[in-house]
């Protein structure tokens, strides 16, 4: 098991390194001059030259990459051109706010999704299952930005119960803090909740159809025990994989939702960087998000291994 974790950690490092190459390559090799991309098509040649010199864009690509990587390894994520500050602290601050949003949403998605999925699987064919199946079907298909618009219309513009946009730090009081989170968290969770509950229902149904569940019933175990002791541990395995996928979708959702609600998190920062062509900031933000995603996948893999004796104890003795 220890060896497994070390191996997976090494592969995470490799993935982050490779994605850093990929990010760098896309930013610097795709057709189009970086300086023109930043300054716009009508920039004066002298402005371009100044910027190129400042960013070291005249150097060979490998040297530019090496300089960037070297900085990243020392904790220097490079500058933000537009804000004229180091990108690191900017990203860190935004990341903290995004983390609040994402972790609450993820807790709802994971806990609620699994609970709903198990409920639907154990009530297969009944009214509650059918209603949920239909709801999942529709909710998966509604884009989160449209949920956001509807939410703002109903609860902010219409009923005026919640603030439409923005963020309140904890210092402004718990109520203000929470009220700014309600809509973003709901919008972020709703589609993923449908996705997770749908797939965990399928995983649970498959476990309940298995021979070992039949065996547990033949042993006279109560339905409750069959469900939680025999079926659930096996259904958890595919569910963990699903949660890892949904974490990736969640990151996408964060970008959109933060933009709609003007929530000053990392997603908003990335879109800001794109809108203002702040390529170094974009590069740094992407790298941070990719690393987080890779770590989340690592956590999922380890969780999978912990729950799966086949990995924990190797192959047949």
């Amino acid at each position: 098991m220890g060896g497994y974790v070390v191996r997976r950690l090494l592969s995470v490092a490799l993935v982050v390194f490779a994605t850093s190459l990929l990010i760098f390559a896309i930013v610097h090799i795709l057709p189009g001059n970086v300086a023109y991309a930043i300054l716009g098509e009508y920039a004066t040649p002298s402005a371009v030259a100044t910027l190129q010199q400042r960013l070291g864009l005249d150097d060979p690509l490998w040297l530019q990459y090496w300089r960037w990587l070297h900085g990243v390894l020392r904790g220097d994520l490079g500058p933000s051109l537009v804000m004229d500050r180091p990108a690191g602290p900017l990203i860190l601050e935004a990341l903290g706010r995004s983390a609040i949003l994402a972790s609450i949403a993820f807790a709802i998605v994971a806990g609620g999704g699994i609970a709903l999925g198990v409920h639907a699987a154990t009530h297969q064919g009944r009214i509650s299952d059918r209603v949920m199946t239909l709801a999942q079907f529709v909710f998966i298909a509604v884009p989160d930005f449209f949920w956001a618009i509807l939410g703002v219309m109903a609860f902010a513009a219409g009923l005026d119960w919640l603030p439409a946009t923005g963020y309140a730090p904890w210092g402004d009081g718990a109520l203000a803090w929470a009220s700014h989170l309600v809509l973003p968290v709901t919008v972020l969770s709703i589609g993923l909740l449908a996705h997770v509950s749908r797939l965990s229902r399928a995983a649970m149904l498959e476990a309940l159809r298995s021979r070992y569940v039949l065996m547990a019933r033949a042993k006279g175990m109560s339905e409750r025990r069959v469900l939680w002791r025999h079926a659930a541990p096996n259904a958890m395995l595919p569910t963990i994989t699903i949660l890892a996928i949904d974490f990736g979708l969640l990151i996408g959702g964060v970008v959109v939702v933060e933009t709609v609600f003007a929530y000053p998190g990392l997603g908003r920062l990335l879109v800001f960087a794109i809108e203002h062509r702040d390529l170094p900031l974009l590069q740094a933000g992407m790298l941070v998000l990719t690393t987080i995603y890779a770590l989340a996948n690592l956590a999922a893999d380890i969780g999978y291994a912990v729950l799966n004796p086949r990995i924990r104890y190797g192959a047949a003795a």
């Binding site: 993935v15 990929l22 795709l30 991309a37 990151i251 996408g252 970008v255 992407m286 995603y293």
Partner: peptide, 16 residues
């Protein structure tokens, strides 16, 4: 191993 939206963002951010 890239989150789905990021790849799209990255490609579209750099070119018009």
């Amino acid at each position: 191993s890239l989150p789905p939206i990021l790849l799209g963002l990255l490609i579209l951010a750099v070119t018009p």
